[in-house]
Design a binder for these strands. Structure first.
Lengths: 142, 142
DNA sequence: AAAAATACTTGCTAAAGACAACTATTTTTA
DNA sequence: TAAAAATAGTTGTCTTTAGCAAGTATTTTT
C-alpha cells in the first residue's frame, strides 16, 4: 500500500481528532459524561433498548454500563422494565425528562459544529459536507 | 446556517469517531495509554520539549502531566534535564529506548490505518487521501 | 526590593473503567 | 428431561485517569 496515502490519512486523523475532541468536551460541560450522553443517544434513537443492545454500539464494560444505567435511572432520565417474555432482559426507554435532556444535548452538539464551521463561507460549508459525505461513503463499503 | 450541512457533518463525526476510536484502542493494547503515546509522540517530534510545550498541544492538567512524565522517566523512555539558562524549565528528550518504542507505536498506527483501508482499491485509496486532504485544508483556515 | 508571573510538583479527591465472581433465567445437548 | 452451557445483568474490588488546590523554586515585572 502507498505510504503517502497512509501518511495523509494519519495526518487527517490527528487534526480531526482534535476538532472532534473539542466538540465532545463541550458536551462534558453539559453535566453529562460522554458515556452518559452516548447512552442517552442510544436510548432515544430506538425503542426498547437493553443493556446488551446499547453495548453492541458502545462496547463498554458490562458492569460499568450497569452502573451508569443505574445512575441515569436515579436521575429519572430513563426507565428500566423487566421483559415479560424473557425475564433476563430489562427493557430501557427514556422518560419525558430524558427525551428533553437528549434534545438539549443534541442542540448543543449542533451548535458546537456550527461554531466550528462559522468561519467558512456558505459555499465552503456545502463543499465540506459534500467531501465528508464522500469519505463516509468510501469507508462504509465493508 | 444550513441545517442539512450540520446534519451531514455530525453524521460524519459519529461514524469517523468510531473508526478512529478503534485505531486508538489498538494503541492501548501496546502497553501505553493514549496520553503516554501522545507525550511520546511530542517528545519524538521535536527536540528539547518541556512540560509546558507538550501541554500546549495536549492541554492536560499540569499536575497529571507531571506525573505521567515521571512515569515515562521511570520506564526509561524519556530523560529530563534542568535548563541551565532558566532553572524553572526542565528539558525533555527521548532515550534510545523511547525513540525505539515510539517508532514501534508509529508503525502500529500505520498498520491499523492500512488494515482499515485494505478493502478499498488503489484508486479509492488515493481518492480517500485526496478528499481528507481537502477537508483538512478547509478546516485549517482559521 | 517587593510583587507578580512562570514552570513545575505534590497531596488529595473523584470519575471512569476493568476484572472477576455472582444471581437469575433461558437455551442447548447428551 | 435433567444437566450443562449460554445469556443478561449486577455487585465488590481495584486501577487508571484526571482535576483541583496549594506548594516550591526561579525569573520577570513594577
Amino acid at each position: 500500500m502507498d505510504e503517502k496515502v497512509v501518511k495523509e490519512i494519519r495526518a487527517f486523523n490527528r487534526s480531526y481528532v482534535r476538532t472532534i475532541g473539542l466538540l465532545q468536551n463541550s458536551i462534558l460541560n453539559s453535566g453529562y459524561s460522554l458515556t452518559e450522553a452516548h447512552i442517552l443517544n442510544e436510548v432515544n434513537s430506538k425503542q426498547d433498548s437493553t443493556a446488551t443492545s446499547i453495548n453492541q454500539e458502545l462496547k463498554l464494560d458490562e458492569g460499568y454500563l450497569s452502573r451508569v444505567i443505574k445512575k441515569l435511572i436515579s436521575k429519572s432520565l430513563i426507565i428500566k422494565e423487566q421483559s415479560l417474555t424473557d425475564k433476563r432482559v430489562f427493557v430501557i426507554n427514556p422518560t419525558d425528562k430524558g427525551i428533553n435532556e437528549y434534545q438539549k444535548l443534541d442542540k448543543l452538539a449542533s451548535k458546537m459544529v456550527k461554531n466550528n464551521m462559522e468561519h467558512l463561507s456558505h459555499i465552503q460549508q456545502i463543499e465540506l459536507a459534500d467531501l465528508l459525505g464522500k469519505v463516509k461513503a468510501l469507508l462504509k463499503k465493508e
